[in-house]
Design a protein around this nucleic acid. Structure first.
Length: 511
RNA sequence: GAGAGUGUAGCUCAGUCGGUAGAGCAUUCGACUUUUAAUCGAAUGGUCCUGGGUUCGAGUCCCAGCACUCUCACCA
């Protein structure tokens, strides 16, 4: 019998025959492997004269067997630990088996000697397969090579793995299988578990930053009758009892603003939004967004907040402000650079973004379609083409052309400029913030005035009468911020694909 | 939606000019009480993505389809 699955089931049967539950049970007083590593310094060598010696430094070239001969006779002593985890490697050498097990804090070697654990446990150990969840209780010590090891006195069986594991060295590399079987990716590949734990730390840190700034977290509706607040195609669904169409939200904005009208002066939501668009290494149809609104603030307040959120997030996962991404070094030491849209436009193209004729000529040179488009739309297409990719950042691009920002307050004394910034890192737009428009009549007008050159789908300006009515109840002047959390996690964890920071990205069904 | 690439054993991958399907790991058996990708000896394991076509003969060439990856488009 050499079918791996059948072999595993046969061993499961033999474990049961030994009176052991192959799917285990509660295991108390467990020592996490990271704690074992912390306790390594408690391992001492006790000479027969009763002298306690610290162990040699195993980072240096040292022959521990020789060291013991030189300092002996005596014996090693160390704390007793109780570990549990998944078997990643197994090296049987006759009446002795070395196992490497992994829990979610690290991995450690287990020494299983027939004499040391007894015949029954040794027979059990011979039924262990790679991927099984097992436990061991024993003394923490060092082998002759200095490897930190649990010298098992008792073994436990926790759960049988009935599927064959991936190749033990290369792991699971097929990108489709990694996403489809994320459990196997997390369990057997180096890296993914740490990346996703870092994602959790980053999100926790973001909440802490906002909470300590006095923001309150809320949960807006994910089912909308009008999907507004962003330019995107929504997913459409249907409510049976009410017999009416609903759409999944594409942004958090409009409901959070309603809450500011209601008196929630600092409010945020960290949640999933859904956009019915193509997939790419930077796009998943559902993704996580942070939106935060601060009454009596403006886009400048949001710039400070953005910096704090990102710097705290970096500190929560360690590694310092200088980070590598896509072969570039990004320095997150605050304050981040700031430059106006017009400056960057001028630098990249050599022309004045206010000079409409030159802008049009430049667009034609780039081969852009300009027919029937609003000058600001053309301007922005050039900006996206020539500027965005070059922004290694982190850099705040500030003061956007007003007409491409229908939810933004205009700069005082300059109605053509919107008080908006976008934060760019490695050519990716990571955050977007405004001094929020709170004039209901102007908002209504902007909703009604579709931008030239934009069809309904492309426009943010979808009429939402209830939102306008809310604004008429007085929304305080405010700053608002949106952050693409998945992209932030990508950059902070060094992942090149959004699918490596989303646990279960959208996939076609398995054939 | 467009273009390019990939699809072979449970996993990671070779496969030449079209001529009997290969390796490593895993699995099974044997040896081994300080190994660490343990080692050594032996064995087992295939719908070569699917369906057509060309050919005496197709993993290999052609056509169509499916899936994944990358680039572009939409978008954040």
């Amino acid at each position: 019998m050499t079918d791996p699955r059948a072999a595993r089931r046969e061993k499961l049967r033999q474990i049961e025959a030994m009176g052991i539950d192959p799917f285990g049970s509660r295991f108390d007083d467990r020592t996490l492997i990271a704690d074992c590593r912390r306790q390594a310094s408690e391992i001492k060598f006790k000479t027969n004269d009763g002298e306690l010696l610290a162990l040699p430094d195993f980072d240096a070239e040292v022959d521990y067997r020789q060291w013991k001969a030189d300092h002996g006779p005596g014996e090693e002593i160390g704390p007793t630990v109780r570990v549990a985890g998944r078997i990643m490697l197994s090296r049987p050498t006759g009446k002795l088996i070395f196992l490497n097990i992994k829990d979610w804090t690290g991995s450690i070697q287990i020494f299983v000697g027939k004499k040391q654990v007894g015949d029954d446990d040794f027979s059990l150990a011979k039924l262990f397969d790679l991927g099984d969840l097992v436990g061991a209780e024993g003394r923490l010590g060092r082998t002759n090579t200095g490897e930190l090891t649990v010298f098992a006195e008792k073994l436990f069986f926790h759960t049988k793995m009935l599927e064959p594991p991936p190749e033990k060295h290369a792991g699971l590399t097929n990108a489709d299988l990694r996403q489809r079987m994320r459990y196997a990716d997390l369990a057997f590949n180096d890296g993914p578990l740490e990346t996703f734990l870092n994602r959790t730390r980053i999100i926790k840190s973001i909440r802490e930053t906002l909470d300590s700034d006095g923001f309150c977290e809320v949960e807006g509706p994910t089912l909308h009758t009008v999907a507004g607040g962003a330019a995107a195609r929504p997913f459409e669904t249907h409510h049976n009892a009410l017999d009416m169409p609903l759409t999944m939200r594409i942004a958090l904005e409009l409901h959070l603003k309603r809450l500011m009208v209601g008196g929630m002066e600092r409010v945020y939501e960290l949640g999933r939004v859904y956009r019915n668009e193509g997939l790419s290494p930077r796009h998943n149809p559902e993704f996580t967004m942070l939106e935060a609104y601060q009454a009596y603030g403006d886009y400048g307040s949001m710039m400070d907040l953005t910096e704090r959120i990102i710097c705290n997030a970096i500190e929560s996962i360690g590694g310092g402000y200088e980070r590598e991404y896509g072969g570039q070094t990004i320095d997150f030491t605050p304050p981040f650079k700031r430059a106006t849209y017009a400056e960057l436009f001028q630098q990249a193209t050599g022309i004045d973004s206010g000079d409409e004729a030159s802008v049009k000529a430049y667009a034609l040179k780039l081969g852009l379609e300009i027919e029937g488009k609003h000058p600001d739309v053309i301007r922005n297409e050039i900006f996206e083409e020539k500027v965005e990719d070059t922004l290694t950042g982190p850099i705040f691009v500030i003061d956007y052309p007003a007409s491409i920002c229908p939810l933004t307050k205009r700069k005082q004394g300059n109605p053509d400029i919107a008080e908006r910034f976008e934060l760019f890192i490695c050519g990716m737009e990571l955050a977007n913030a405004y001094t929020e428009l709170n004039d209901p009549d102007l908002q209504q007008k902007l909703f009604e005035t579709q931008l030239e050159g934009l069809d309904d789908e492309e426009s943010m300006a979808k009429m939402d009468h209830d939102f306008i009515r809310a604004l008429r109840h007085a929304m305080p002047p405010a700053g608002g911020l949106g952050v693409g959390i998945d992209r932030l996690v990508m950059i902070l964890t060094g992942q090149k694909s959004i699918r490596d920071v989303i646990l279960f990205p959208v996939l076609r069904p398995e054939s």
